[in-house]
């Protein structure tokens, strides 16, 4: 039966007076009209802080800043702000530690650097399995003493911050992002659904990532990854669907995809609304979007 045939439904049993009141009220929403004729609608100057955010977001949409160059902060990038200090601290103790650790979980990590404050990073406990350094990719630049191979798997005692870690080599772009992310989720087998199984306590790291010694930032410690996902989702118990270490507009980037956790605390995440963040190794967001996944 088509929409045009007006099939009877519960919606048809409406109080005519209520219907009339609603139509009157809708007619009073002049401010929603493109040209409402209300001078007040056009005399609300945009505050400078809003313009700063908008222009920064547009600039970033045009051209994500490469790592290391200053960039204006958008709504998205401000989320990553608080993580910078933590990430910098981690960097200070050893750039190449490619370890993951859950909030209170077990870690399977690369070799910890000597002078470690890494001990602090690894503090709560984790059991670590080192990936042999000899697994470094043949032909890749020889790792410096601080560029060690990463983990092959991660075991979390707490809620894992991620379901899958991939290195798809996809070159993500803003215009194709929705389709690319969907394809990545399909490839990873983590298409969001309300009846998804609990995340696995152990997350495999693809060989090309664990052995490439290219991991920095997010992948240098489990805490960095947990902090980043928490920062992005605003929820410490969140589990993102995928982290894809690939490229965005040709530049190396981490693409983190998550269902929407912007819901009341006791509520499950909105599995139909997909959030995508492109972040640099310090979890600074260089680009982001959300889209509703069609079924």
């Amino acid at each position: 039966m088509s929409e045009e045939q007006f099939p009877r439904s519960a919606d048809d049993d409406v109080d005519p007076e209520a219907l009339a009141a609603v139509q009157r009220a809708l007619g009073d929403l002049a401010f929603l009209r493109p040209d409402d004729g209300d001078p007040a609608s056009t005399t609300e100057p945009m505050p400078p802080w809003v313009w700063d955010r908008i222009s920064a977001a547009l600039a970033e949409a045009h051209d994500p800043q490469p790592t290391g160059t200053p960039h204006r902060r958008s709504r998205l990038s401000r989320w990553g702000g608080g993580l910078i200090a933590a990430s910098v601290a981690v960097l200070a103790v050893g750039v190449a530690v490619t370890a993951f650790r859950g909030t209170s979980g077990t870690v399977v990590a690369g070799e910890a650097p000597a002078a470690d404050a890494g001990a602090a990073v690894m503090a709560d406990s984790a059991a670590v399995e080192s990936a042999p350094q000899q697994e470094a990719v043949a032909g890749a630049p020889a790792p410096s003493p601080r560029m060690l191979a990463g983990p092959r798997s991660l075991s979390f005692a707490g809620i894992p911050p991620i379901r899958k870690i991939l290195g798809t080599s996809t070159d993500y772009s803003p215009s194709a992002m929705e389709g690319q992310v969907t394809a990545t989720l399909e490839q990873a087998g983590v298409l969001p659904a309300s009846d998804m199984p609990s995340p696995e306590p152990t997350v495999e790291v693809p060989t090309e990532l664990s052995a490439s010694a290219q991991q920095t930032g997010l992948l240098q410690s489990a805490q960095a990854l947990r902090d980043c996902v928490t920062r992005l989702t605003h929820k410490g118990t969140s589990t993102a669907l995928v982290l894809d270490q690939s490229t965005f507009k040709g530049q190396p980037a981490s693409i983190i995809v998550s269902p929407d956790y912007d819901v009341p605390a006791a509520q499950a995440p909105d599995m139909s609304l997909i959030e995508v963040w492109v972040v640099d190794p310090d979890c600074n967001i260089t680009w982001g979007m959300s889209f509703r996944m069609s079924r």
């Binding site: 929409e3 045009e4 007006f6 409406v14 009141a21 609603v22």
Partner: peptide, 28 residues
């Protein structure tokens, strides 16, 4: 989309609003 579809969508939407905002009938 066809005109009938627009009418139908408006009808359904208004009905939903009337149910949730029925108390506004007292407004005037």
């Amino acid at each position: 989309c066809p005109e009938g579809t627009v009418k139908s969508r408006c009808h359904r939407g208004r009905a939903k609003l009337a149910k949730s905002l029925g108390y506004l009938r007292n407004l005037d």
